[in-house]
Simulated scan of single mutants.
Amino acid sequence: MSLRPPARKTVTALAVTAALALSGCSGESPSRAERKTNFIDRAPVATEAQINSSPTAAAIRARGQMLIGSDKNLPLVSQQNPTTGQTEGFDATLSRMLAKYITGQSTPRIVSVTPENREQLLEAGTVDAVIRIYSITEKRARQVTFAGPYFDSGQTIATLRTNHAIQTADDLRGKKVCVVKDTTSEKAVTQKEPEAAVTPAADSSQCVSALEQGKAEAYVHDLTVVAGAAQLNNKIKIVGNPFTSEPYGIGIRHGDDSFKNFVDDWLRSIERSGLWRQAWQQSLGTVVPGGPPSPPNIGGAPGT
Results as ranks from 00 to 15, higher is better:
Ser2Pro: 04
Pro5Cys: 05
Ala7Tyr: 06
Lys9Val: 10
Lys9Met: 08
Lys9Thr: 14
Thr10Phe: 08
Ala13Thr: 13
Ala15His: 13
Pro30Gly: 09
Pro30Thr: 15
Arg32Pro: 00
Arg32Lys: 12
Thr37Gln: 13
Asn38Arg: 15
Asn38Pro: 01
Ile40Lys: 10
Asp41Arg: 14
Ala43Thr: 04
Pro44Cys: 08
Val45Leu: 07
Ala46Gln: 03
Gln50His: 06
Ile51Thr: 04
Asn52Ile: 05
Ser53Phe: 06
Ser53Gly: 11
Ser54His: 07
Pro55Met: 10
Thr56Ala: 13
Ala57Met: 07
Ala57Asn: 11
Arg61Asp: 07
Arg63Cys: 08
Gln65Lys: 13
Gln65Ile: 13
Ser70Pro: 04
Leu74Gln: 14
Pro82Gln: 10
Pro82Lys: 14
Thr83Ser: 15
Thr83Val: 15
Ala92Pro: 05
Ala92His: 03
Ala92Cys: 09
Leu98Ser: 02
Thr103Glu: 03
Gly104Asn: 06
Ser106Arg: 10
Val111Pro: 00
Val113Ala: 00
Val113Thr: 06
Thr114Phe: 01
Thr114Tyr: 02
Thr114Ser: 08
Pro115Arg: 02
Asn117Gly: 05
Arg118Val: 00
Gln120Tyr: 05
Gln120Glu: 13
Leu121Ile: 00
Tyr134Trp: 10
Thr137Met: 01
Glu138Ala: 09
Arg142Gln: 13
Thr145Ser: 00
Tyr150Ile: 02
Ser153Asp: 03
Gln155Gly: 05
Thr159Ser: 02
Leu160Pro: 02
Arg161Thr: 08
Thr162Phe: 01
His164Gln: 14
Leu172Ser: 05
Arg173Phe: 04
Lys175Phe: 02
Val177Ser: 01
Val177Gln: 09
Val180Met: 06
Lys181Ala: 12
Asp182His: 12
Thr183Gln: 09
Thr184Cys: 04
Ser185Asp: 09
Ser185Tyr: 03
Glu186Val: 01
Ala188Met: 08
Gln191Thr: 15
Pro194Ile: 04
Ala197Cys: 08
Val198Leu: 06
Pro200Gly: 06
Gln206Asn: 12
Cys207His: 09
Glu212Val: 11
Gln213Cys: 07
Glu217Tyr: 04
Glu217Asp: 13
Glu217His: 05
Ala218Asn: 08
Tyr219Ser: 06
Val220Pro: 02
His221Ala: 14
Ala227Val: 09
Gln231Tyr: 08
Lys235Met: 11
Ile236Arg: 03
Lys237Thr: 14
Asn241Lys: 15
Phe243Gly: 01
Phe243Pro: 00
Glu246Arg: 14
Gly249Met: 00
Gly251Lys: 00
Arg253Lys: 15
Gly255Tyr: 01
Lys260Trp: 06
Val263Phe: 03
Val263Cys: 03
Asp264Met: 02
Asp264Gly: 03
Asp265Lys: 11
Leu267Ile: 12
Leu267Val: 12
Arg268Gln: 14
Arg268Pro: 01
Ser269Gln: 15
Glu271Gly: 03
Glu271Trp: 06
Ser273Tyr: 07
Gly274Ile: 07
Arg277Thr: 14
Gln278Gly: 11
Ala279Tyr: 05
Thr286Lys: 12
Val287Pro: 05
Pro289Cys: 10
Pro292Ser: 13
Pro295Val: 12
Pro296Glu: 08
Asn297Leu: 11
Ile298Ala: 10
Ile298Ser: 07
Pro302Cys: 09
